[in-house]
Structure formats: C-alpha cells, structure tokens
Design a protein around this nucleic acid. Structure first.
Length: 275
DNA sequence: ATGACGTCCTGCCTGC
DNA sequence: TGCAGGCAGGACGTCA
C-alpha cells in the first residue's frame, strides 16, 4: 500500500520525467476514478497544460500545471501512476491514460479501483474532502516532539489507530505505523494518554527513522507497489514486524504476533512491546 | 470526540 | 481440480 515513502518515491521518479512536459490529451477508461470534474471537462482542462512540478502532501500526489490547475492523485491500496512508452501494454486495470507531448504516456492503473484523481484549481485544494484536515508532515519542521506530546495528551485513543489517523500525522499507514511502534517498543493497543515522556520521544524518532529509511530504499513492495518508472521498492527486506507473523523478533527472538487493533492487522512482538 | 461498522473492489488463500 | 467464501485494507460516511 502506498504510504508516505512510496508516494514520495513516485513523486521523485515523476518529477524527473514529467517536469516541463505538456499533456496533449486524456483517455478515461474508468470514469469513477476521476472525482472531479466530469470526464469531458477533465479532458478539456488538462489538454495543453504544462507540468511545472510534482509535489506531495501526506499520501496525496500533486501535479502542478500551468494555468493554476493541479492534478491530485491518491493511490489508496493498489493504485499505480507510471510514466512509459505509448506502446506499452494496456492492462484491464489501466483506468486513465494521459498523453504527453514527447510521445510518452502517464498511466493510472488500479486493481482494486480505490484510487482517485481530482483536477482542481490549486487554490481549491482545501475543498477536497480529507485533504484540508490533514495533520502535520512527519518529516517537516512542524512535526516536533512537543506536537506529539500535546496531541497524544489530547486524543483519547489507542496509539495504533491514532497513528493511522491522517488528521494527526499525514502519511503514515499500516506498515510504517507497525514498524515505528516496534522500534519504540510500544504495544499497538496502549492508550495514547498513557505513554511516558520517554516513550513519546522514542516513538517520535522511530516514526521519522522508518519513514526516512523507507524513502532511502525507494518504498516497500509487499505485493503491488511500483514507482513512476514501474520499479519495485526494497524496504520490505528491512521490515522488522510487518507481514512477519510467526517469524522471530529481530530484537529478542520471540515470535511476531498479528492481532486486529481498530479493525486493522497489527504486527508486533509480544515480548518487546508489552501491553 | 471516539469507535464500530459498512462501503468500495479484486485477487489470493483456505477449506471442502 | 474446482469452486465457494472469507479476507485484506485507506478513507469516508453513518450511527451510537
């Protein structure tokens, strides 16, 4: 699942390929993928627009166009956004094909059809549901130990579901939340309000460490993830708990356990991360 | 304010 | 071997 490091990896690859190119048209094979505007207006608006830069906010990818428009993409679970040759094979999961003025294509594909796109004026980004309420960027300067401390005190929730709450920290998902909790030796079911100052500090650094390492390794490919060039990531080899149920903990040797917390699978070491 | 749950959707895995 | 059914899961909406 694309989380912050995966979306950042896509951003980096696309920024390199797309900056300066112009869209020459759009083929919309699965209309529901585009939330706004309707297909005809989408095609009309995107045609002849030049790409100025590719940025990221949380798990949202932002492709800025001249004329004040932004193409916003959320990959959700299995979405991919890949730059490639116009003659590349179109699979049954390809939903949107954007043509570029160098003869190449930018294609959005998604097996589970959860991913979404929006084409909006850059000034209207805050109108997108979910986007306007995003919390801090965990690798930005607004994310401080003090912010962590205040938010954890304020929110009466278990720590794992809280880490997945995008209005708290933008960009964490199931994989990196589990990895951060393991490094900080915190059980996913602990109430946020019960974390000690030392645990909060450990978690704060663990979150930044796992995200940075994820980006350095160009993301985690558990099943589907590929970047803007179609390449898989390699951070899955360095995961300590996620998808490692039954394997020995790298820290103490005890078996990694899986348990549902807040409706989501949580992988943790019952010895290192005591309740 | 929080949490539980349904919804979206397909491929994979398990069990018979 | 083949089929049915359950499950995974990010975000959002609804309800308690």
């Amino acid at each position: 699942m694309p989380e912050l490091p995966e979306v950042e990896t896509v951003r980096q690859s696309l920024q390199q390929k797309l900056a300066g190119l112009k869209f020459t048209g759009a083929q919309i094979l699965m209309p529901k993928v585009i939330q706004t505007p309707d297909p005809d207006e989408f095609k009309e608006t995107i045609t002849d627009k030049k790409i100025t830069k590719v940025t990221r906010r949380g798990k949202y990818l932002l492709i800025y166009l001249n004329g004040g428009f932004t193409l916003v993409v959320h990959l959700r679970m299995t979405g991919t956004l890949v730059y490639g040759d116009k003659d590349d094979l179109v699979t049954k999961h390809t939903h949107v094909i954007l043509s570029l003025d160098n003869g190449c294509h930018l294609r959005f594909a998604d097996v589970r059809q959860f991913g979404r796109m929006w084409l909006v004026p850059a000034t209207s980004l805050s109108d997108l549901p979910g986007y306007k309420d995003l919390g801090v960027e965990p690798l930005g300067e607004m994310f401080t130990r003090d912010y962590m401390k205040k938010e954890l005190r304020r929110r009466h929730a278990r720590i794992k579901p809280l880490l997945l709450d995008q209005t708290f920290i933008a960009g964490l998902g199931n994989i990196y939340a589990d990895e951060a909790l393991h490094r900080a030796k915190i059980n996913p079911e602990r109430l946020a309000t019960t974390l000690t100052p030392r645990e909060i500090a450990l978690l704060y650094h663990a979150i930044q460490d796992v995200l940075r390492e994820g980006i350095e390794n160009r993301g985690t490919t558990v099943r589907d993830f590929i970047d803007g060039d179609g390449r898989a990531g390699s951070y899955q080899e360095l995961l300590r708990v996620y998808s490692r149920e039954g394997e020995p903990c790298s820290c103490c040797g005890k078996e990694i356990t899986r348990k549902k917390v807040g409706g989501r699978s949580s992988y943790y070491c019952p010895a290192c991360q005591k309740a």
